[in-house]
Design a binder for these strands. Structure first.
Length: 565
RNA sequence: UGGGGCGUAGCCAAGUGGCAAGGCACAGGGUUUUGGUCCCUGCAUUCGGAGGUUCGAAUCCUCCCGCCCCAGCCA
């Protein structure tokens, strides 16, 4: 059995496939598909579905198609298909030559509809949409049959052909399946198959003015492509009897629809409609804003495809409604970047430090390790001189308990450099603001070790002032302040948008080696977090970095715990 | 009051009659020139509840409770 990851958590869909394979169902074929509607950008929830479908195909030596479910021209755009293609392939999946569109099948769908009409299983209905709703009945009451339900086959064929030809106005008529207006499942009460829409389609242009509905089209799309296992989300469970009904009536290849629970993520929103609102309302800067849970947003934020694939595997697939803790996603990106990202020194909020006993006009090149997790990534040189910057947070004039960074009289290590001791704090006379620190260094501790064996409790990152390069750094935080911003039904979720989800730092100081970075390049700024070069705004003479995720910070936890005491 | 689903730890999630995997989070401890990583340890006598069947139940049966979805010519 093709399974190179025996430790993968089992899930019910995989179990169904294993069982089907055991009985040689579909001649042992496994063929899945990812069927997005091109009406928005893909988000992390779609990524889970992509990983599921392509992953299953991969695991069982099958195939997975990418298919655009473009049956509604008024909502769909080419921009979205472009972004979806980019996102799926960025995630690392390959549909080879199997890129399909529902619109490729419009002719076949039309023929199938004619077949159903001729079997007396579909009819043209002249009821308005309001009337159709009234006739449908309610959840607890049966519906009424349309007065047009018993038209002759000839009349239905004629009317349907004239619908196709464009003789009727939008909404004037629809084609409906003739099933059962008293069915307890609302979806079976003569569902609409075609509606008249005089709208240009992003691919077929003005060829069509009738468009198939999802229920009518989807099963047939799957059938035409000989899909074996058609995974979709839970809300379509009620549609399965209809999915099956159409395929049975037509006697065509019958894929199996399997429903799984869609994913929710804490502190964000996974709904195309709401994400569109955030974009259109300028609450974020576009679909690929690094705060967005979209694949393009995560990509720009610095997430790797591997981290997202791993996350998808980690959250699993089940039928139970779930809200995954965003900490799990953050864990996945840290895990990946810890192994792969080069370490670098960068100061976000600089505090000037003068090493008073270090010679003027001197600079030396110190050896620094590029990644302690991977020796093959080698070492580099970092310049050191009399004036350096350290992080404002790394000095406290009046250090609290358990704070073991720099403080007056205290000695700490500068990473890869020297031990320094703080002797003097220079303040602005008026504001009391700390302007700079005067420290002395111990020349014997070069590289970071004291020959006499004395220890320091802290190691700080730093950057030489005269060698540093400037950069803008964008710090991102969760998009919403509540774990489930949509939970309160009578409060708009936008109320819970985090006003501090983006903080821009303009005068960050980075080690000079970062001068020639390229868009998308990722680094760990030691003791801070993982950052990547912004793909849109970063320029050679104006570097912009996005913080992907901060490092775990146990000091922050201690601080918080002390405050809560 | 119709139909379809789902209830295993704070969050995901295995398990399908033989005595509760794993991960995240959290809490301790060790290593450490990143308060990072890594490594140990702890974390459900119990599976929504109550009965029943059985030598034995999260798994089977009955009843009850809770949550989600469905009345678009959206997908």
């Amino acid at each position: 059995m093709p399974n190179d990851k025996p430790d993968r958590t089992p899930n019910f869909i995989r179990n169904i496939i294993i069982e089907d394979l055991k009985h040689n169902k579909n001649d042992g074929r496994v063929h899945t598909r990812f069927p997005p509607e091109p009406n928005g950008y893909l988000h992390i929830g779609h990524a889970k579905s992509i990983c599921l479908n392509f992953g299953l195909a991969e695991e069982f030596n099958g195939l997975c198609n990418l298919r655009f479910d473009d049956t509604n021209p008024v909502k769909e755009e080419d921009e979205y298909v472009k972004s979806i293609i980019e996102d799926v392939s960025w995630l690392g999946f390959d549909w080879e030559n199997r890129l399909y569109y529902a619109s490729d099948y419009f002719d076949q769908l039309y023929d199938y509809a004619l077949q159903l009409i001729k079997k007396g299983k579909a009819y043209v209905c002249d009821l308005s949409s309001e009337e159709t709703r009234e006739y449908r009945g309610t959840l607890t009451e049966a519906g009424k049959e349309s007065p047009y339900r018993n038209r002759s086959i000839e009349e239905n064929v004629d009317l349907f052909e004239r619908m196709y030809k464009g003789e009727f106005a939008d909404g004037a008529r629809v084609l409906r399946a003739k099933i059962d207006m008293a069915h307890p499942n609302m979806n079976m009460r003569d569902p609409v198959m075609y509606r008249i829409l005089h709208a240009a389609h992003h691919r077929t242009g003005d060829k069509w003015c009738i468009y198939p509905t999802y229920d009518w089209a989807h099963g047939l799309e799957d059938s035409i492509e000989r899909i074996t296992h058609s995974a979709c989300t839970l809300e379509f469970e009620d549609h399965r009897p209809l999915y099956d009904w159409f395929l049975e009536q037509l006697g065509t290849f019958h894929p199996q629809q399997i429903e799984f629970a869609p994913m929710n993520l804490t502190y964000t929103m996974l709904s195309k409609r709401k994400l569109l609102e955030l974009v259109q309302g300028d609450h974020v800067n576009g679909w690929d804003d690094p705060r967005m849970p979209t694949i393009s947003g995560l990509r720009r934020r610095g997430y790797t495809p591997a981290s997202i694939r791993n996350f998808s595997e980690m959250v699993g697939v089940a039928k139970r409604e779930s809200t995954v803790d965003i900490a799990m996603l953050e864990y996945c990106i840290r895990e990946d970047l810890n192994k792969s990202a080069p370490r670098v020194l960068g100061v976000l909020q600089p505090l000037k430090v003068v090493i008073t006993n270090y010679p003027e006009n001197q600079a030396e090149e110190l050896d620094a390790v590029n990644n302690p997790e991977d020796a093959s990534m080698g070492t580099r040189k970092v310049p050191f001189s009399k004036i350096i910057y350290i992080e404002q947070d790394d000095f406290k004039e009046d250090p609290p308990k358990k704070y073991f960074r720099l403080a007056p009289g205290r000695e700490v290590r500068l990473r890869y450099a020297y031990f320094i001791t703080c002797n003097e704090v220079i303040k602005d006379e008026k504001t009391g603001e700390i302007k700079e620190l005067h420290c002395t260094y111990d020349p014997a501790t070069k590289g970071g070790n004291a020959p006499d064996g004395r220890k320091v409790k802290a190691t700080l990152h730093w950057v030489s002032a005269e060698h540093a390069i400037d950069a803008e750094i964008r710090l991102y935080d969760r998009l919403f302040v509540k774990p489930d911003p949509g939970a309160e039904k009578d409060v708009d979720y936008k109320t819970f948008l985090n006003p501090n989800s983006l903080e821009i730092l303009k005068s960050c100081k980075l080690e000079p080696g970062l001068k020639n970075v390229v868009a998308g390049e990722r680094f760990q700024f030691e003791r801070q977090g993982y950052f990547c070069v912004d793909s849109k705004d970063s320029k050679p003479d104006g570097l912009v970095f996005n913080r992907t995720v901060p490092l775990r910070d146990s000091w922050a936890k201690i601080e918080k715990a002390m405050k809560n005491k």
